[in-house]
Each structure stands twice: as C-alpha cells, then as structure tokens.
Design a protein around this nucleic acid. Sequence first.
DNA 1: ATTTTGACTATGT
DNA 2: AACATAGCCAAAA
Length: 104
Amino acid sequence: MTPFTERTLAILKRIPSGKVMTYGQVAGLAGSPRAARQVVRILHAMSRTHNLPWHRVINSKGEIAVRDDESYQLQKMLLELEEVEIRDGRFIDLERYQYDRDSE
DNA sequence: ATTTTGACTATGT
DNA sequence: AACATAGCCAAAA
C-alpha cells in the first residue's frame, strides 16, 4: 500500500459521524491537494473491504456526488441516520457538518 | 514507459 | 444557477 493511500485511509476513518469532508479536503490532508480524484478511486476500490465512511465524503459544491440513483438514495439515507439534513441533494446547513479542524 | 480511469475542482461564460 | 472546459493525479491496466 502506498503512503498516499495509507494517509487517505487514516483520514477517512477519522471523520466523525454526522460530519462530512470534501474529496479535495481529504486529498489535501493526505498531502496532495489536487488528488481529489484519487480519493474517489480509493473509495471505490476499498470502501467495502476497509469499512470506510464513504457516505461522509462529498464534492466541493457541498453536494452528494454520486450520480447513480440507487447509490445516491443510500448515501442520503446513511447521512440522515447521522442527523445530517439534506434537501434536493444539498445540505441544509453545510457549515454545521463540515469537518475541518483536523490539522493537529 | 504509456494510457486509461474517475463519486473531482477551479474558472469562465 | 447551470453548463462547458481544461487541469489534475495516483493507481491500475
């Protein structure tokens, strides 16, 4: 496993329930701010086997990025189970859910 | 070594 | 707000 992947996994696992991060934020903390698409790859490839909170990762516009309707509904449901309120694919109060304080 | 692959992002219109 | 475009980059093929 490459260092970037390792760091990305560590970061993803630290996103608390009820909070979200963008693909770009995760990539940035993992050391490569413009590798958002790599985060997407990692989620696709490893979310199942590594028990990652894939539903807590959203795009920079503050939307659920998934296009497939079934997966979209699943992601929305998982977030709502964590008290994240969404309407029309957008977060009611994104500010409240953003997980920034991570630099440490 | 080169090409393809994305649940992306910033910018411009 | 919506759309197009170009840039992006690590991993896999």
